[in-house]
């Protein structure tokens, strides 16, 4: 009896398929046991109905959610505005710090000092200081609107971080690029604008988005100024009913806006890794 001749390639492929199937099965069983077991353990405890009522009450959710959503709109407007302001300001600071013109020295010094300063002060303190401190001066022509002051405070705090991200991006561009740009006759400013910055920005998009994810939830800090945004609304509701469902409702809203950004970031970094591997393989 002679067996059908099977190539080594087919034998290996079959073995690989068997192993893949087994791994998938093990992962599925393990997931069901761990997650399912955890849920079962939690929901069968004696205190579970109390937990459910305190944190996941549908009724409390229904009553407070519309107000929380309205409050959240303030958060959204705030972080969108601050993101734009931070992008512009931090790019300006980063470029300024890489210039060499002697006339700009005081600005470079100011940028360096304020970056270190605002990175060192807790954001909540900056918000408080500006939100209450500036109106206390009663200066004519200076806005007293807490939302504008809050946006200003968040911009100051985040510009300190994001400008460092941009600066790292500028430093990450190979010095040969600047040499080549100057060698073809571009000025320093043109080399920065056309050659270095485009590469720098591309290099720092992941850490940049990371800072924005963090900003999208740090907007809740402006509640210390009495701005009735999502967290503040939820806090008021929770305090008057002793039910914490509104806080979870607010939390889920912050999550809803940050998770897509996180997923996008993950995908981008994965693609980047893939491209780098490809480049190395081609070398």
């Amino acid at each position: 009896m002679s067996a059908e001749p099977i190539s080594r390639r087919e034998v290996r492929a079959a073995a690989r398929r068997r192993s893949d199937r087994r791994n998938a099965l093990i992962a599925a069983v393990s997931t069901i046991v761990v997650i399912g077991g955890g849920v079962l353990l939690l929901t069968t405890r004696q205190g579970w109905p109390v937990v459910q009522e305190t944190f996941f009450s549908p009724e409390a959710f229904r009553t407070s959610f519309p107000d929380i959503l309205r409050g959240f709109w303030i958060d959204v407007k705030l972080f969108l505005a601050v993101e734009v302001l931070v992008l512009i300001a931090s790019l300006g600071v980063a470029v300024l710090r890489s210039t060499r013109a002697p006339a700009l020295f005081p600005f470079r010094l100011l940028a360096a000092v304020s970056t270190d300063l605002f990175r060192g002060i807790p954001t909540i303190l900056v918000v408080y200081l500006i939100g209450f401190g500036i109106p206390a001066l009663a200066l004519p022509g200076v806005p007293n609107d807490p939302i504008i002051l809050a946006a200003f405070a968040l911009t100051l705090s985040y510009t300190a971080y994001v400008s460092e991200v941009f600066r790292a991006g500028i430093d990450s561009v190979h010095p040969g690029q600047r040499g080549a740009a100057l060698a073809v006759g571009l000025s320093r400013a043109q080399a920065m604008r056309f050659v270095i910055l485009p590469q720098a920005v591309r290099n720092v998009i992941p850490p940049l988005l990371n800072d924005f994810i963090s900003l999208q939830k740090d907007v809740a800090l402006v509640s210390v100024l009495g701005i009735v945004e999502a967290f503040r609304v939820a806090q008021i509701d929770a305090a008057s009913t002793f039910n914490y469902t509104p806080l979870l409702a607010a939390a889920s809203l912050y999550v809803i806006v940050t998770v897509p950004l996180s997923l996008f970031l993950d995908r981008m970094q994965k693609r980047d890794r893939g491209r780098r591997r490809l480049e190395e393989a081609r070398r």
Partner: peptide, 20 residues
């Protein structure tokens, strides 16, 4: 220096093309 570099041109060992 920019005026001088405009009348010269240089090619580098590692190309230094602008990748973007």
């Amino acid at each position: 220096p920019q005026r001088v570099r405009r009348s010269l041109a240089m090619v580098f060992q590692h190309f230094n093309l602008f990748p973007h």
